[in-house]
């Protein structure tokens, strides 16, 4: 179940996170190569979101997080990691158009006082086309369905051109055909070197859509192929005893 550290785009070593007296994560160590498409599974409250926030530098953590070989303490920015949170965290009534939202990913390529360029706009239009939202540029977010909204966030991550994309339950509410299309897109992008970590508790999705799974519940419970991680012993340690039988024996 171990993975080579050669060519790693993301490395975590002994990472832990505490919220006050509560230990949310402990002893998390794993390495991710460029272009991997990884499912992160675990029950609600298992620490999946906390893990992603630690990778982004959004929560204080112990241990080490390296992105593209740069230690977390030495990173002057977090631009190489795109984080798509669960949709409930955003203000959906904010007066912003889809085009403006997607264009936000381009901010990393210019300084605060520089205006957006034709290349930025072209990148935004291309990203919207990739998530089947062409022609939605002028719509406000309040006009989008839940699934369309998540696709717009994914388009924003694409314009950011991050080498690591973290999707935290990001396809909640997205219909099945669009989910298939988006995973095809993730697969294409991962072949060109973009790394995806996708938090989900949908084990059917996890089984069929990822080459590698990481099971989390407070710490790493399993790391390997879907067959290895969805084995009864790992499922029971991750989701609680009896979980494997309710999932059809894993």
């Amino acid at each position: 179940m171990s993975h080579s550290h050669d060519g790693a785009v993301l490395e975590l070593h002994d990472v832990g996170v505490r919220y006050g007296d509560r230990e949310a994560l402990r002893n998390v160590t794993f390495s991710v190569r460029a272009g991997e498409l990884i499912g992160v599974i675990g029950p609600n409250g298992a620490g999946k979101s906390t893990l992603f926030k630690a990778i982004c530098g959004l929560v204080n953590h112990s241990g080490e997080v390296d992105v593209n070989g740069v230690h977390c303490h030495d990173r002057v920015d977090r631009m190489d990691v795109a984080y798509i949170p669960q949709r409930s965290e955003a203000d959906l009534l904010f007066p912003i158009t889809v085009g403006e939202l997607v264009m936000a990913g381009r901010r990393r390529f210019r300084s605060w006082h520089q205006r957006t360029t034709a290349a930025d706009r072209a990148a935004a239009i291309e990203a919207l086309a990739a998530v089947n939202l062409s022609g939605y540029e002028a719509r406000s977010l309040s006009e989008l369905s839940g699934g369309q909204l998540q696709r717009a966030y994914i388009a924003r991550a694409l314009t950011q051109e991050a080498s690591v994309v973290l999707l935290d339950e990001a396809l909640s509410g997205v219909d099945q055909p669009t989910t298939i299309e988006l995973f095809d897109l993730f697969a294409t992008l991962s072949k060109s070197g973009t790394t995806f970590l996708f938090a989900t508790h949908d084990l059917a999705l996890a089984r069929h859509r990822f080459d590698r799974l990481i099971a989390v519940n407070g710490t790493i419970q399993g790391d390997g192929s879907p067959e290895q991680v969805l084995a009864p012993a790992v499922l029971d340690s991750t989701f609680g005893s009896g979980a494997s039988s309710s999932q059809g024996g894993g």
Partner: peptide
Amino acid sequence: LLFGELRLATFDHVQAEQVGVH
């Protein structure tokens, strides 16, 4: 001058930090 920065920081401060907004 700060219109774009204000928009990013107000709508989604997490993503704003990720793309370099102070």
